[in-house]
Amino acid sequence: MEYLYAFLIGGAICVIGQILMDATKLTAPRVLVILVIAGALLQAFNLYEPLVEIAATGARVPLPGFGYNLAKGAMEGAQQGLLSAITGGVKAAAGGITIAIGWGYLIAIIFNPRSVR
């Protein structure tokens, strides 16, 4: 059942993003930002944590999961002080950020991307 929930909830998040791109004039980067902010806001009101408990990786991997991770780290850091509140989100998401930068660099070296005119 864990795989089914991960697939359904992760898929639903992706469908929401696709609908936003198809039904509005929003560009892909704007939709990505909206999804990250939505995850952070849902976590601020403790609404995203239940999705993570049910769907696990299906809710953590999509972009709202990144926002959730940032907000959760900042909220946990806020218990230790102002500086920890500022750095807590980045510390919590450091692994994902590192992987994204590393893979992006590696793919850019392998495939030699060009600018689109």
Rank of each mutant, 00 (worst) to 15 (best):
E2D: 06
E2H: 02
Y5C: 03
Y5S: 13
F7I: 14
L8I: 14
I9M: 00
V15T: 05
I19T: 11
I19C: 03
L20G: 04
L20K: 01
A23I: 09
K25T: 11
T27M: 11
T27N: 13
T27D: 15
A28R: 03
P29Q: 09
R30L: 13
V31R: 03
V33Q: 06
I34T: 07
I34V: 11
A38T: 14
A38I: 09
N46G: 05
L47M: 13
Y48E: 04
L51A: 10
V52D: 00
V52H: 04
E53S: 14
E53G: 10
A55M: 04
A56C: 03
R60E: 03
P62A: 09
L63E: 01
P64Q: 07
G65T: 08
N69R: 12
L70A: 06
A71H: 05
A74E: 10
G77Q: 10
G77T: 09
Q79T: 07
L82H: 12
L82R: 10
L83N: 05
A93L: 05
A94S: 14
G96N: 07
G96F: 02
I99Y: 04
I99F: 07
G104F: 04
Y105V: 14
Y105S: 04
I110P: 00
I110N: 00
F111C: 05
N112Y: 09
R114P: 00
S115L: 13
V116Y: 01
